[in-house]
Nucleic acid binder design. Structure first.
Lengths: 245, 245
DNA sequence: ACCTGAACACCGTTCAAGT
DNA sequence: ACCTGAACACCGTTCAAGT
């Protein structure tokens, strides 16, 4: 995964300051930032690819709670305000991260396999990528594709696959949107706690639901989120497959 | 809708202070809160039902950005810290709102109609309620049902409907979860801007997707979010219906 | 153009003091 | 038990000053 990070590079060019990197955990490493004096540096310290990579590192380490503009700046050895020379807002940072992650979704099967199995692979891959990044879902869901080139590229490949499989053109977008809606909702489901359906002290007043939950648990092994995703996905594939001409 | 608010009542018992209510728009109505001196009041000013109703009013007026603990306290004429005698956190407030809204979802058809049309009505109602409240979706998706009695009650009715329709017990929860995932994702889709699929200057490099978008737009009239929701929902209903015994 | 440093207008939450 | 008022440790963002 690290190998796919954009513009793999250290936050700063190697310098004597690196010998102090063991102190990075200190609460206020002001001294590190102070190393660089005010005014425009000879070469730009930041760019969007570096900001994206740093954000992904931060998210990987501390989750989305740890992704603050201050923490992002600190990890890049700049003042928080420096970030605003490269992004307009924190939402822009999330958008950069989103577009980078979308490029990780596997669409290769659309070039090589029948429609059913291509959609299946794409959907599972898409869900798996964003299950780790659910805080991005509200961003993606309202994101004009113009602002996210990799995302647009994914849509082009997927819609091409639908078209080649004989889908009526006017149904392609609706089918993709429906699949995506299911995928986004299912990504949340992956993050739900194991006891989410424990009805606790209310069990006696909810016999039907409690029984259904117990019956599912008795089935055992497979993760409930995966069982539900598979069930829904196969129904959608079967239903949409019937639209093909 | 107002008639279904919990414990319909003013934020404070009628009092001479009400004559100053025209000043409530003032930036810092400290004087109103100062009207009540420190120490425990004779009768409690706050309760969870009142907090829920005030939160819903605030959301209705200014959206979820306007729902801050400070604004909530101001609308209830108390200091922000007073809220913490009745809720543990802001998340608790969102949970109260969520459970109240879930009670608005229409499950009545499960008692009176065939399974297909009951699921259809429930799903549309569920989506419509939360399309106006998408910031709650991350909360619901991870919410143990124990903490939300109305939500648990909805599950009981729905799972009872599935059972009565001949669903194998061990599939009921998975089918409901899959439907919910689709519903939550589709609720986001309702809020997407109309030009979300405008590929802009990239149109020439994405012919397949751009053509599909144009073809959908040419169909006209119906809202794209509704078309996609209908398409996915009918596929899920048809696919799940086949599981019945 | 692109950095620093100081400042702004917020957040949610805690806690002592009061009745 | 349930309020006020002050305080805390944050947020994202703006902007003048510097090179």
């Amino acid at each position: 995964m690290l190998g796919i990070l954009p513009a793999e590079r250290p936050a700063m060019p190697a310098s004597p300051a690196d010998s102090r990197s063991t102190r990075e955990r200190e609460p206020a490493p002001k001294t590190l930032a102070a190393r660089r004096r005010a005014g425009r540096p000879a070469a730009a310290v930041l760019d969007q690819a570096g900001i994206t990579a740093a954000a992904l590192r931060l998210i990987g380490k501390n989750g989305y709670d740890g992704l603050t503009m201050a923490a992002l700046a600190r990890s890049l050895n700049v003042a928080p305000s420096a970030l605003y020379n490269h992004v307009e807002s924190k939402r822009d940072v999330l958008l950069l991260v989103e577009d980078h992650l979308t490029a990780l979704v596997d669409v290769t099967a659309f070039a090589a396999e029948p429609w059913e199995s291509a959609v299946r692979k794409w959907a599972w891959s898409y869900r798996d990528v964003f299950a780790e990044h659910t805080p991005l879902i509200p961003v993606i869901a309202v994101l004009p594709v113009t602002d996210a080139p990799q995302t647009l590229s994914m849509y082009e490949t997927v819609s091409g696959g639908f078209r080649a499989a004989g889908f009526p053109e006017e149904r392609i977008v609706s089918a993709i949107v429906a699949l995506e809606s299911f995928i986004f909702g299912s990504a949340y489901d992956v993050t739900a706690p194991a006891d989410i359906f424990d009805s606790g002290s209310m069990a006696e007043s909810t016999p039907s639901f409690t029984g259904a939950v117990r019956s599912l648990a008795a089935q055992g092994h497979e993760k409930p989120a995966d069982v539900a995703f598979s069930l829904g996905l196969e129904a959608l594939i079967a239903g949409f497959g019937a639209l093909r001409e």
